[in-house]
């Protein structure tokens, strides 16, 4: 299945802003995160088609997955 992955802020470094990815049916967000060499604790926001998603959520064909890093400084 095809899924669009959008990355934001530091997640773009050495990766991409937007990429169409061919993923096996049943792929979880967590697996995409791992494929991108990101760790779970770096994740700030997960959006799937503009709605908040979870790491253990299953992706569906045509989904747009957006990942933002955690920001907490002051």
């Amino acid at each position: 299945m095809q899924v669009t992955v959008k990355l934001f802020a530091t997640f773009r470094n050495g990766r991409f802003k937007l990429e169409e990815r061919e993923l096996p049916e049943g792929t979880l967000v967590r697996q995409v995160v791992a494929d991108l060499s990101l760790t779970d604790d770096e994740i700030g926001i997960i959006m799937i088609n503009g709605r908040h998603g979870m790491l253990d959520q299953e992706l569906l064909p045509g989904d747009v997955l957006s990942l933002f890093p955690l920001v907490g400084g002051g």
Partner: peptide, 12 residues
Amino acid sequence: IYRHWVAGKGIE
């Protein structure tokens, strides 16, 4: 905003 946060700091 911090629903996925477990421990530690962010990109800062």
